[in-house]
C-alpha cells in the first residue's frame, strides 16, 4: 500500500472521529443558537468515563453502553442548570458561562482522576494490528472505530431525515418559534438536543479513549478543531459537519507529510478558503 493510500486511510479515520465530536456542536449551535465552549469538556468527560467504566465493565463497548446514557443525563442537567438561561442572551454571555463551565469541569477532572495521563485498555479481540505495508501496521481497533463512526453517521442522518425527532430538529433549526406555535414545547426539544450533543461528544471521547488515552486538556484540543469543522460545514448542518470533518482529517494527514512547514496553519487556511467561497459554509444557509 502506498504512502498516499495510507494517508487517505489515516485522514478518513481522524475525520470520522472528528465528525462525532463536531456533529453535536453544530446541532447545539444551529438549533439552540448557543456557542458552547464546554462542548470539548463532554469529550473529555467521555474519555475519563471510558477509563472508569471500563475498569468496572472490562470492555470499552460495555462502558459505552452505560456511558452514553450517563452523558445524556449530564447534558440534560447542564442544560437545565445553566444553558437554558442563555438562549435569549448575547454570544458574549454564552461564551463567558460556557468558558466557566470548562474551568469547573477541568477542576473536577483533576480532583477525581488526577493529572497523570491514563491509558484505557483496548478490548483484546481488537487489540491486534494488521499489516498495511511490510513496515507498517494498522490497529484493528482503529478500523473498528471507523466502522462505528460510519454507522453512527448513517444512523444520525437517518434519524434527521426520516424520523419525527429529525423533523423536529430540522424545523427547530429553521424556525424555533413556529415549532413552539405548532404545539411542541421547545424547552423539551432544546434540552434533548443539548443532551444529544453532549452524548455525541462523550461518545467520541469514549470511542477514541483506547487510542487517545485520557489526560488533562484533551477536550480543549477537540473543541477548537470542532469549531473549525462547524464553520467549514455550515452552522447546524450535519451533512456539512460530515464533509468538513473528512476534509480536515485529510488535510491534516496529507499536510503533515507533504507540506510539514504549513501543517499547523493548513486547516485554518482551508477554513478561510471555504469562508471566502461560501461565507455560510459548505451547507450553511444565509
Amino acid at each position: 500500500m502506498s504512502l498516499i493510500l495510507v494517508q487517505i486511510l489515516n485522514g478518513l479515520q481522524y475525520g470520522l472521529l472528528l465528525f462525532l465530536a463536531a456533529s453535536g456542536l453544530t446541532l447545539v449551535f444551529g438549533i439552540l443558537g448557543v456557542i458552547n465552549l464546554a462542548h470539548g469538556s463532554f469529550y473529555m468527560i467521555g474519555a475519563y468515563m471510558a477509563l472508569t467504566l471500563t475498569s468496572y465493565t472490562g470492555d470499552i463497548f460495555l462502558a459505552l453502553a452505560a456511558g452514553i446514557p450517563l452523558a445524556f443525563l449530564v447534558g440534560m442537567a447542564i442544560e437545565w442548570l445553566f444553558v437554558r438561561h442563555l438562549y435569549k442572551r448575547d454570544h458574549l454571555q454564552q461564551v463567558l458561562l460556557t468558558f466557566a463551565l470548562i474551568l469547573v469541569f477541568n477542576e473536577a477532572q483533576q480532583s477525581i482522576w488526577g493529572n497523570y495521563p491514563k491509558s484505557i485498555p483496548m478490548p483484546s479481540y481488537l487489540s491486534s494490528s494488521i499489516s498495511l505495508t511490510t513496515d507498517l501496521g494498522y490497529s484493528v481497533y482503529r478500523l473498528a472505530l471507523m466502522a462505528i463512526c460510519v454507522g453512527l453517521a448513517l444512523l444520525m442522518m437517518f434519524v434527521i431525515q426520516k424520523t419525527r425527532v429529525g423533523r423536529l430538529i430540522r424545523a427547530a433549526e429553521s424556525n424555533p418559534e413556529m415549532v413552539e406555535a405548532l404545539g411542541f414545547d421547545s424547552r423539551v426539544l432544546f434540552r434533548v438536543v443539548f443532551a444529544a450533543g453532549a452524548a455525541l461528544a462523550a461518545a467520541a471521547g469514549m470511542l477514541a479513549a483506547p487510542v487517545e488515552s485520557a489526560y488533562p486538556g484533551i477536550g480543549e484540543r477537540v473543541l477548537i478543531i470542532s469549531f473549525v469543522v462547524v464553520v467549514i460545514g455550515g452552522i447546524g448542518s450535519i451533512r456539512g459537519a460530515f464533509l468538513g470533518s473528512l476534509l480536515i482529517g485529510l488535510a491534516d494527514a496529507f499536510g503533515k507529510v507533504f507540506v510539514p512547514k504549513f501543517s499547523s496553519v493548513l486547516i485554518y487556511a482551508l477554513m478561510a478558503l471555504v469562508l471566502v467561497l461560501r461565507p455560510n459554509g459548505l451547507f450553511g444557509r444565509s
Partner: peptide, 10 residues
Amino acid sequence: PEGRGIFPNL
C-alpha cells in the same frame, strides 16, 4: 403567522 413561517428544510 405573518410571513408564513413554513419550514424551508422540510
